[in-house]
């Protein structure tokens, strides 16, 4: 299986859709869609995320890998499929910022890993707080590129704490890579250094939140 994951990962990173689809289809002949997601796609995307963090893969490759995987998983495991993972109600948003790529990548990686989540697009802190409270979100992922937007996450975390919410906040984006303490400064519960970190963090919280 390890070899198959590596081949699949290579195919994704170098945008070889034909090869990626071939490996995916072969795997589906031997295992259920959910097993293929967990044993093939998730490990491949986690490795790709790690390699970006180490500097050996680029953002464009992560983005395209996520999109290709998402398309394949959507076909084999539609959003309405009961096998989609039972999970805490989750949403992802870009806060007060106009840079949407990071959010899109995390969204794809999570959906390709069998998770469903709300995509809130871009929101201001006040609107975001109202919406997550109204929709009873348990896990909120906030993506930013600009430092002022990152600092504004504090407004969200404070307002949610004041409202008595037990929501968990994961933050990610460039400012957090350059200041490793910034996620705590803005009142987040965790920080993802790459797209697949969000996946690992949510997996780690599953027991506590489900």
């Amino acid at each position: 299986m390890q070899q198959r994951v590596e081949e699949f990962q290579q195919a994704l990173a170098y945008l070889d859709r034909v090869k990626a689809n071939e490996i995916f289809a072969q795997s589906l002949q031997q295992s259920s869609p959910l097993q293929v997601v967990e044993q093939l796609i998730v490990p491949a995307l986690i490795n790709i995320g790690r390699q970006w963090q180490e500097g050996s893969l680029a953002l464009s490759q992560i983005y395209m890998s996520g999109r290709i995987s998402e398309e394949m998983v959507d076909q084999a495991l539609p959003a309405s499929d009961p096998d989609r993972k039972k999970q805490p109600r989750s949403a992802i948003v870009v806060l007060d910022d106009y840079h949407m790529l990071g959010k899109r990548i995390v969204y794809s990686v999570l959906r390709a890993s069998g998770y469903e989540l709300f995509d809130y697009g871009r929101m201001t802190p006040q609107d975001l707080v109202e919406r997550v409270l109204a929709e009873k979100i348990r896990v909120l992922m906030i993506s930013v590129l600009m430092l002022p937007s990152a600092l504004r996450i504090r407004e969200v975390s404070d307002a949610l704490a004041q409202a008595g919410s037990d929501i968990r906040i994961i933050v990610g984006g460039a400012p957090f890579l350059f200041d490793k303490n910034l996620w705590q400064e803005v009142g987040a519960d965790a920080m993802g250094e790459n797209a697949s970190d969000a996946l690992k963090i949510i997996q780690g919280w599953m027991g506590e939140l489900s």
Binding site: G55, A58, L59, S60, Q61
Partner: peptide, 9 residues
């Protein structure tokens, strides 16, 4: 930057 695209691209 290699943060964003691979060298070959």
């Amino acid at each position: 930057s290699t943060t964003n695209i691979p060298r070959e691209l």
